[in-house]
Design a protein around this nucleic acid. Structure first.
Lengths: 211, 211, 211, 211
DNA sequence: TATGAATGAGGGTTCATTCAT
DNA sequence: TATGAATGAACCCTCATTCAT
């Protein structure tokens, strides 16, 4: 019976979480598909399979719900970030990281988050700033730290490691990201992504490999 | 009389065009500042100094007006694209082009066409596709054509010139574009842009300069 | 033809006024019947026979519409106020004024306005204050001025004419106003009003007639 | 066992009553501060420190709760009413009663029952009627009964004692009540109330004192 | 052609009420 | 009995679009 009580509590908490998650999941899809303005609370409620009123039980208003979504996406995407081993040699490290980054920005869902946040950044600067800091800047910093370690170890020769990190990440997007976000091409194939990352790595090392 | 009639027609067309341009100018500012959903026909009418009804004389609906705006922006930005001299050496050519491209994508003063079009691309894929083709893809192709010429002349050594063109353009955005669109940093200074383009050019040539 | 143009202008203005008046009329009825909170813009639109959107063409929001109604009522009721002849003897003057005042506060419409404004005065103090100033205070001041004239002429003997004016007005409401606003009794008959005013006048003069 | 059962019932009733009173106390404050429409069941629940659901255990709906509040206020205010000693002389009796009545109708601190009930009287006529009967009419009747006794004792000379009672009560409000409910002036000071009641009493006796 | 008053559908939000626990 | 999560109807308001002038 004691078990039953705690069981019940757990269930209640689960349900609570599940309802909240249910809403977040529904809202994420709608927001990412239609953007902040294009998404209506009614459609979100329908997607989340709850009533419109229930949305306001969990979130103060549309804006708070959106921010929660972006925060959640930021955390998720921020975790995706590669964990670097400073002792590992550069080439394979960069390739692996580049591929992970490409998956983040060029996958349906991932791309949508970037696009959606970008779109609203002018009217909700904090939201844009936070997403950038938690996902993109964080990645740059981690890669930059790794590069510094490789510079220290004499493997690489780089003046501005922050810039170099950013350069590598941009290189990985070459020919893939823009056509994808502009809907000019579908999400790239694994093969194509590998090839582009390979080329990016070659180019990066050609410029920054210590002689 | 024949003259008079054609004269009149010309005048009418002029007036038509002038009103049309007036609307396009007003709408461009509003759309680029607020996005498709954020812009209201009322505000556009006010910005264009015409009545709301007049908007519908020249454009079927909000969507058609927006498409016309994007088309116009695409033409304008497409023209901005550097005109390459295939006989000119690579370094200065790339630097000049890189700077022009950076100015296009990081243009200060809120209303960014790139952001606005990107934002709506999921819901209006044609609009995204066309803008990409007319501005970004066109630039890539021109740069690619230039690179091919330099490869032919033995100056550069590049396998995939389309990819290389895209790589250079991405490199130019490193550390500048993303912080800018996410409102994490203000529009970059001329000095900073020059430095980044310089570094991009060095990197590009380190990889692709024929030995 | 010139006539036609001005005619047309007049009609437009008339229609404008008529629409505005139409809204005000519909809104007045609904607001006075249901109070500020009880009245819905939908019901007002129905009562005014216009669409909901049209309400917002003429008035910024529900509050502005309500304020316009109260202002209009205040003007109307303020005009009802008796115009006093300082040379006229007190008894008949007071009776006439008393009756006019009673009609104002105990007639459906009049009573409703007072009730409606009273009800909202705590949440919209300015509205309450303005209505009081334009209708009730104005009446008190006019009566007070008249009383002062009669005091000066030796007809009456009053210390505080403002208080006396207020006293007379309150006396006129005795046994009539409160049952009316609390819906305990229907609007009083002319006969009953006359009798109460008569009694009020007698009482007033008994106290303030110069000996 | 029989004792235990009745004991238990008593406890249950006590708890019931205590919860009920808790709700009534919380609701009274909210209703009187914000009016019937302005008050929300959520806010009432918060003020009463019970859950929203509990409100519906004790009261069928918002309307029933409001009616109970008004009933309670009516009883309370009805008790406040002066208890008259028919043998006491008129002047001091009237002054004391007048002051008590003024405190009732001009009670400082927002929430005025009179205003709240008045406001809703058109939509809930029974509520208005009952409050009027239990508080105002009751006071009039008591005062009227007292006056009749003084008429019988030869102290006063009054034709219509009901009207006279109402007249005195109205006189006491002169210059105080209307500015107060319309928020044109703050609640009157004790001093001012005394002066007005004094003047009312003088006037009343000037008219009705037996010669 | 140009207008802007008028519309009504749909937006975000609140809230009285219900119900499973 | 007491709870509070969930509901859905109704709220105020905006806005793309139409139409008589």
């Amino acid at each position: 019976m004691v078990v039953a009580a705690s069981e019940q509590l757990r269930i209640v908490q689960d349900e609570d979480n599940s309802k909240r998650r249910q809403i977040l999941d529904g809202a994420r899809k709608v927001f990412m598909d239609l953007g902040f303005d294009g998404a209506s609370m009614g459609e979100i409620a329908r997607a989340a399979q709850v009533s419109k009123g229930t949305l306001y039980v969990y979130f103060a208003d549309k804006c708070a719900l959106f921010e929660a979504i972006v925060e959640q996406e930021a955390l998720q995407h921020g975790q995706v970030v590669f964990s670097f081993d400073p002792d590992r040699e550069a080439e394979s490290t960069l390739k692996e990281f580049g591929l992970a980054y490409l998956h983040l920005v060029c996958r349906p869902g991932g791309g949508s988050a970037i696009r959606t946040v970008m779109a609203i950044a002018e009217r909700m600067p904090d939201v844009g700033r936070r997403y950038y800091a938690r996902v993109l800047d964080k990645s740059i910093n981690r890669l930059s730290a790794y590069l510094k370690a490789r510079v220290a170890s004499g493997d690489l020769s780089i003046d501005d490691c922050d810039l170099a990190a950013s350069q590598f990440m941009e290189l990985c997007k070459a020919s893939l990201f823009l056509p994808f976000v502009f809907q000019a091409e579908p999400a790239p194939s694994e093969q194509r992504m590998s090839a582009v990352v390979e080329s990016a790595t070659r180019m990066f090392l050609a410029a920054y490999k210590a002689r």
